[in-house]
């Protein structure tokens, strides 16, 4: 009896130290990867206020003096100021059109009854499969024909076309979880469809709409391919490309390039930090349909 008691005690003891060791290992592994995940961002932040020659001399240490002129050079010489504004206009404009067209369509596809309904939903959602690079040649041909390169309205509609599938998918999925009775009173009162949409459906879908909007914002802000092919004018260039040409043109102005990098990562990073849940949900919503 006594011996068996002793044995269990010993066993419990080893289990506890095993758990402690496990815990230590767990945090060690996670911390190592934390450093790997964050280091390039940390590197960009500290280098953006260093002199170019110091960036590589001491890449890990905090700056000894703050050289904010890097940002001035990036904005003025690197075209980052104008292209930052352009990216805001382009992604902002696209989001407005996407949300408008996407929520109207999602509402119909979630709530109305007609023959082609399911087919149409599949038609929209399968757009997630279309690779952007597969359309640049035909679009470039057509845009050339109509002389609509360098046209923001066209760019906005193009981004809308490629972000509608996921947007409709997110909002449609959300509306299906909301009981359809919520509109019934309004329908019986004789309210028109527009009124019901703008006063009931749109406000109720805001959680899904904002998830889609933030996700689309990050997508469009970060997109390189479409502006690369369809925008040739420097004063209309977006930030992703301005960054690349700044790096290519001013090979040794590392401080300036780092400042430009920081400016370009700021909006998506801020969006992520403030709307963490929404960003994670939006980005993975295309994946977790099961």
């Amino acid at each position: 009896m006594i011996t068996s008691n002793f044995v269990t005690k010993k066993k419990v003891h080893t289990n506890i130290s095993k758990i402690k060791l496990n815990n230590f290992l767990k945090y060690a592994v996670m911390s190592v990867y934390l450093v790997i995940a964050i280091f390039p961002i940390y590197f960009a932040l500290i280098s953006s206020v260093k002199e170019s020659k110091d960036i590589f001399l001491s890449p890990f240490s905090l700056p000894s003096e703050l050289h904010f002129e890097n940002f001035v050079r990036a904005i003025k010489i690197g075209n980052i100021g104008i292209s930052f504004r352009n990216s805001v206009i382009l992604s902002g404009g696209s989001i407005i059109v996407i949300v408008f067209a996407g929520s109207l369509a999602a509402y119909i596809l979630a709530r109305f009854n007609f023959k082609a309904k399911n087919g149409l939903l599949v038609f929209f959602i399968s757009g997630m499969m279309i690779p952007m690079q597969s359309v640049i040649i035909p679009l470039s041909y057509v845009f050339g024909k109509f002389g609509i390169h360098n046209n923001y309205m066209v760019m906005i509609l193009l981004f809308t076309a490629f972000n509608l599938p996921i947007t409709i998918f997110i909002i449609n999925g959300f509306l299906r979880t909301i009981p359809s009775e919520i509109e019934e009173a309004a329908v019986i009162d004789g309210s028109g469809a527009f009124r019901i949409f703008s006063q009931i459906i749109f406000p109720i879908s805001l959680p899904a709409i904002s998830t889609a909007a933030i996700f689309n914002f990050i997508n469009i802000w970060n997109n390189l391919l479409f502006p690369l092919v369809f925008i040739t004018r420097r004063d209309l260039q977006v930030i992703a490309l301005a960054l690349q040409s700044f790096f290519a043109e001013r090979v040794s102005d590392y401080g300036g390039v780092m400042a430009a990098i920081v400016l370009s990562i700021l909006p998506p990073m801020i969006a992520y930090i403030f709307f963490q849940e929404k960003v994670e949900k939006g980005m993975t919503s295309g994946a977790v349909k099961g």
Binding site: Y33, A44, A240, L243, S264, M269, M283
Partner: peptide
């Protein structure tokens, strides 16, 4: 922290 790289613009991440 693990998710941060995902939201970076690919251009910026590539240059880094």
């Amino acid at each position: 922290a693990f998710f941060c790289p995902v939201v970076l613009p690919l251009t910026a991440a590539s240059l880094l």
